[in-house]
Design a protein around this nucleic acid. Sequence first.
DNA 1: TTTGTAGCGAGAGCGGTGCTCTCGCTTTCA
DNA 2: TGAAAGCGAGAGCACCGCTCTCGCTACAAA
Lengths: 259, 259
Amino acid sequence: MLEPVTDTEKTDATAAPARALTPRHRARTQTVADIIRLGRRHLALHGAAALSLRAVARDLGVVSSAVYRYVESRDELLTLLLIDAFNELGDEVDAAIGAVPVDDHAGRFTALGRAVRTWALREPASYALLFGSPVPGYNAPAERTTVPGTRVIVALIGILESAFRAGRLAVADAVRAEIPTALQADLDTIRAQFGLTVPEELAARGVLVWSALFGAVSFEAFNQYGPDTFSVPAELFDHHLAVLAGVAGLQLRASRDDG
Amino acid sequence: MLEPVTDTEKTDATAAPARALTPRHRARTQTVADIIRLGRRHLALHGAAALSLRAVARDLGVVSSAVYRYVESRDELLTLLLIDAFNELGDEVDAAIGAVPVDDHAGRFTALGRAVRTWALREPASYALLFGSPVPGYNAPAERTTVPGTRVIVALIGILESAFRAGRLAVADAVRAEIPTALQADLDTIRAQFGLTVPEELAARGVLVWSALFGAVSFEAFNQYGPDTFSVPAELFDHHLAVLAGVAGLQLRASRDDG
DNA sequence: TTTGTAGCGAGAGCGGTGCTCTCGCTTTCA
DNA sequence: TGAAAGCGAGAGCACCGCTCTCGCTACAAA
């Protein structure tokens, strides 16, 4: 069928060389890019469920059936936007983390959390697409979305693991909890998968902090707090981040935070 | 996906126990109840975005325009289902809390969390409707949804306040965080609104625990952990609950937990 | 240079959706 | 008893995703 983005496969099918793309090829990728761009705009303006392929076609100045030359279906377009959004979020998180010294683990954690929140509030429809209720009847193809979809948690794991290896990650005694056998086994699997040295207790904390972070962001992005409950929501979020850093076991002393 | 949900006849919940109603009135409320019941089934089976008024009409054995005699619009039906779901969740949470002694605050907190999770995993479409990405173009009328929509947080506040008054709520020093001025004012407003005596620090913790709880539930309900990551997800969730109880400041010693 | 083909856009069309309006019929109520 | 209100059916509008066919055009192999 149609494979809009992977040009390697198409050139392989006809001729081996990966050099000079034909003008038609170039026009095709450009059209796909335009469709994604217009789709992003519709997503941001009217939400995911209102994303209409016909409307994108109208904006593109083309009849609706024409866009099916480039995008297999509406779900395919949704997948493209999903990957696009995942990568944008991942890029911004990586950039935010990169702006903080590697040894300031708490600072990096704060930067990660703030970056997620900032992006979510700037692109609420995209955030809803990624972390809200799944669109019914649509399941994202795992082979294309898992890699970009795991960039935030991979970054978070990197921070926590790095802090642990630097001796700056320790569980607070006040909030210790038991870890039953099955959970221990699951956590061991994860630790092996990522080559982690953090003990199970801290790994479990990391999972909690991960979900709690997105819970806090979702509450803001989805307006769950109710209208006008917090005059400066960023302050509440920063407080949550500070507490969550403690929950994760991060030592806060080195994080001299500038406004 | 899920096994077909057994019909839970909750028609009596909407019937008003007034005196001599005309047969037409009785038939009307019965029809509305049927529409809600069929809407619930469609919601559970196919999700919120696939909820079609025409499909409900077909199931009702009636032409599509006829249901507009009873339900103003599709959004109106969505609102009815929203309130219905909020109340069902609230009922189950209240029942779960009520089964635990009043002085076992940590036990009540655990019961609340487990009740939310159980309901969310049993009714994922309803949970998505309440706590997932908002349906685009649809805003729930606040005057009809705020009261049932706040039952869980009200119950949580009740538990924490009761624990504080019993001297069994104290913030753990290890994870203390600053509370800036604006946030302090917002929290004071909330405390006055609910007649709370808990200090700001604990109130802020309560908000965090609230959003973190729903973050953990959402991660499971929306499958954010990825497939087959945790063999016994309930163990992970219980661990999170235990940590969150500590974060909230609940003293865990009295919570001798039975299976 | 010629020619077959692959890609393309337009258009018609299918079945679905939310929603509106009109038309008769029936129940209710003054 | 008669007016009014409620009701279901049906037609219809504009939109949706998606399919199919029809010519046209650019390209690449012969």
